[in-house]
């Protein structure tokens, strides 16, 4: 994600005001993707014609939006400027989350029904490999240098480190129950893995593949079992990480240098996934049970506004488009 951000930031500088930022939100129950103008937060388009869209990401140049259409058993691809649907990618059954190689190709997809990670070339639309992993693969992360792709398996409770050149698993790290999401720091030194049922975020030293710290959460008045870490994003400068806490309706802010939680931000209900604006000034959260997204100002960590989207928003990605 960080590499994507960097590429977008560059193009923003080059192209100047001709670019507009757009936010794309997948609506799991709404079977649609809501498109918002990032400047006005107005809904400018709704893309229809997909079943159970969940994971959503963008090509490094921001031109293509990839959506895991879970009940279509494929990855749908859209032009971010025209919203035209482009040829789909094979995904294997029930794709939920995926991650793009920092170069923009290939795409690594978690197939939660089949205990495999599918690797797909986004240009030739060919399946390059199927890597067997643990039971119910879910979260996908890629190291900033693109050498390791990490998958979390929800019932096996592990992070599987896969070598992107050989498709071999090179390490397995046992984390807490139901790991959902994996994200590297921009320097690649740390890997964060969220555990929804375990209620923790494991911080893994990528040099040793050892867990150096487990972050736990506490919010006055919230039942401990409702503190369920799901989506996680790290700022481009690597200083802060944000964790969505699901039914606790909060996003926790982590000071990455000290690995401490510094704040809890109240957002919408069942906050699920997170995505930064291309310039990193804002963080968008999908709130599955209140059918909206919250906007967090990352300079002040204030929740500034919430905006209605489709039914049960799941994932979010923001891009700069012509």
């Amino acid at each position: 994600m960080k590499a994507v951000f960097a590429a977008l930031a560059c193009s923003t500088v080059l192209a100047g005001p001709a670019l507009a930022d757009k936010i794309f939100v997948s609506n799991e129950k709404g079977n649609s993707v809501t498109v918002l103008d990032a400047a006005t937060l107005e809904v400018i388009h709704t893309i229809q014609g997909m079943q159970r869209p969940r994971g959503i990401t963008a090509s490094p140049d921001g031109k293509h939006i990839y959506v895991c259409a879970s009940d279509d058993d494929l990855v749908r691809v859209y032009d971010s400027a025209t919203y035209e649907e482009l040829p789909s990618l094979p995904s294997g059954p029930d794709p939920e989350l995926f991650v793009l190689h920092p170069s923009g190709n290939p795409l690594y997809i978690a197939n939660e029904d089949d205990n495999i990670v599918t690797v797909v070339d986004v240009v030739t639309r060919q399946v390059l490999a199927e890597v067997p992993v643990g039971v119910e693969p879910e979260g996908m992360g890629v190291s900033p240098d693109g050498k390791i792709v990490v998958n979390t398996s929800e019932t096996t409770n592990m992070a599987h480190m896969i070598d992107t050149s050989t498709y071999e698993i090179v390490a397995n790290v046992l984390v807490d129950s139901r790991p959902r999401f994996a994200e590297y720091t921009p320097d690649g030194h740390l890997l964060f893995v969220t555990a929804e049922i375990g209620g923790t975020v494991s911080v893994i030293d990528t040099a040793t593949n050892e867990i150096t710290k487990k972050l736990t959460f506490e919010v006055a008045g919230i039942l401990p079992e409702a503190l369920q870490p799901v989506g996680l994003r790290v700022t481009a400068d690597g200083a802060k990480a944000y964790v969505a806490l699901g039914p606790a309706n909060r996003v926790a802010v982590i000071d990455v240098a000290n690995l401490e939680i510094t704040d809890y931000l109240l957002v919408g209900q069942r906050v699920w996934q997170l995505g930064f604006s291309p310039d990193g000034k804002f963080l968008y959260t999908t709130n599955g049970n209140s059918n909206d997204i919250s906007v967090i100002d990352t300079a002040t960590d204030e929740v500034t506004v919430s905006v209605p989207v489709g039914e049960q928003p799941w994932g979010v990605v923001a891009v700069a488009t012509p």
Binding site: N115, G134, V135, T155, T156, N157, M158, H160, N172, L174
Partner: peptide, 10 residues
């Protein structure tokens, strides 16, 4: 079967 898949890593 679920246990065996996890066990294969351990």
């Amino acid at each position: 079967a679920d246990n065996a898949t996890t066990g294969s890593f351990l």
